[in-house]
Design a protein around this nucleic acid. Structure first.
Lengths: 151, 151
DNA sequence: TCGTTTTCGGAATATTATAACCCCTGGGGA
DNA sequence: TCCCCAGGGGTTATAATATTCCGAAAACGA
C-alpha cells in the first residue's frame, strides 16, 4: 500500500470511528498503520516487534488493538496463516473470500456475489444462522504460476 | 459416531491404506479412533491426554499421526477451531464446507457443488491455482436456534 | 469535580505446533 | 548371513500464537 492510500485508509478509519462513537486511539492507529504498510499478511508478533522499536509493548497491547480493528472491520484475520491484513473496503460489512498465494505470500481479497449466494443457500437448507464465514483458498497466484512456467 | 459406524470407518481406512501401500499402524489407528469417537471436533492436546491414559506420549506422537491422517484424507482440520474431525467420506478426495455451531460445538460437513463451482469460477477469473480451500462458517445450527426460540 | 467506563502497561501463563536427535524395527540386496 | 537404509516413533526442548489477571491512567458523562 503506497503512502497516499495508507493516509486515505487511516482517515477513513478515523471517520468511521467518529461516526460509530468509538475511539481511534494512537495505539490502534499505529497498529492499523503497520498492518497496512506490510505488503503481505503480518503476524501479531511481527507487529509487536515493530511496536517495540518505538516503545515498550507486550502481547496484550497488540491483541487488544487487533480485537478492536477486527470488530470495526478495518482488518481481516487470515485463519490459515494466523496473520492479519488491512481491509480493502471497511465502509460496509461484508463477507470476503481470500486467495492466498503460498509462493509469494500475497493475498487477494474478493467479494464474490455468486459464492455469497451459494453459501447463503447452503445455510438456509441446513437451517444454519451464520455469524462469521471463513473462506480462504491456498494456492498459487497467476503471477507466480506464470513465473514458474517461464523458468 | 456409534460403535458400528466407527468400526466401519476403521475398516475403510485400513483398506485404503492397503490399496495405497501405506501403513495403518496401531498409533495411527488409535488416533483416528479417538477422533471418530468424539462427538465434536477434538484438539491435538485432547487427543494427547487420552493417549496418555494408556501409555506415555508427547506432542510429536499426536502431530505425526494427524499429519498422516490428514494426508490420507481420513480426518479434516478445522482451522478456526484448531481441532480435528473424522471425514465422512474418505474414499474420494474432496473439498468440503463446514458449518460450525458455536453454541453446541457440533460441525456439519457438506460437499456442495454450487459452492465448489462458484469457487472454481472465482479462481479461474483470477488465474489462481487452488491447492487447499478452507470454507468454514461459524454460526448457530438449526437445533440450537430452535432451542433458543423456545426458552 | 466526582464517579464510571474504557484503555493501557506489564507479568505470567495457557495453548498450539515444530525441531532435533536418537533408536528400533523390518525388508531388500550383496 | 550380514549390512544397510527407510520409515516410524520416543523424548527433550523450544517456537509461535494467544489469553488471563491485576492494577494504574486516561477519557467521558453527569
Amino acid at each position: 500500500m503506497n503512502e497516499e492510500t495508507l493516509q486515505q485508509a487511516l482517515r477513513t478509519a478515523d471517520n468511521l470511528c467518529t461516526q460509530r462513537g468509538v475511539r481511534f486511539t494512537a495505539q490502534r492507529r499505529r497498529v492499523l498503520e503497520l498492518i497496512c504498510r506490510a505488503e503481505r499478511p503480518i503476524g501479531a508478533y511481527e507487529i509487536l516487534d515493530q511496536l517495540r522499536a518505538g516503545a515498550k509493548a507486550a502481547p496484550p497491547t497488540v491483541y487488544r488493538a487487533l480485537d478492536f480493528l477486527l470488530e470495526q472491520g478495518f482488518v481481516h484475520k487470515l485463519e490459515t496463516l494466523h496473520a492479519f491484513i488491512g481491509c480493502t473496503h471497511p465502509e460496509h460489512p461484508h463477507a470476503s473470500q481470500f486467495l492466498i498465494c503460498s509462493d509469494c505470500g500475497r493475498v487477494k481479497e474478493l467479494e464474490d456475489e455468486a459464492i455469497a449466494g451459494s453459501l447463503r443457500a447452503l445455510e438456509d437448507a441446513n437451517g444454519f444462522r451464520p455469524k462469521r464465514p471463513v473462506i480462504e483458498v491456498i494456492g498459487t497466484c497467476a503471477h507466480c504460476t506464470h513465473r514458474h512456467t517461464q523458468s
